[in-house]
């Protein structure tokens, strides 16, 4: 998970993230970005996420917690 913030920054089309940002504050936050995150989770972490779960994560840190919880 050490590269998680870099990977998420890439998907959110920004240079970097700190973790506290609200997901819906990103300019590119839409259903297609959510789809990209779901695909990334499946390809790189072998976990299955739903759009609702990604939305409910609220922040970048929340998203990381979701990934960790699913991976466990």
């Amino acid at each position: 998970m050490e590269n998680f913030f870099n990977e998420i920054a890439e998907l959110l089309e920004v240079d970097s993230v700190t973790g506290n940002e609200a997901l819906n504050s990103f300019k590119c936050w839409d259903s297609l970005t959510i789809l990209s995150i779901i695909a990334h989770a499946d390809d790189n972490y072998g976990i299955t996420l739903t759009a609702a779960e990604v939305n409910n994560a609220k922040t970048v840190n929340g998203l990381k917690d979701l990934f960790v919880a699913k991976k466990a």
Partner: peptide, 8 residues
């Protein structure tokens, strides 16, 4: 079928 937006 892999549903992905073109950007990714």
């Amino acid at each position: 079928l892999k549903m992905l937006p073109l950007k990714t």
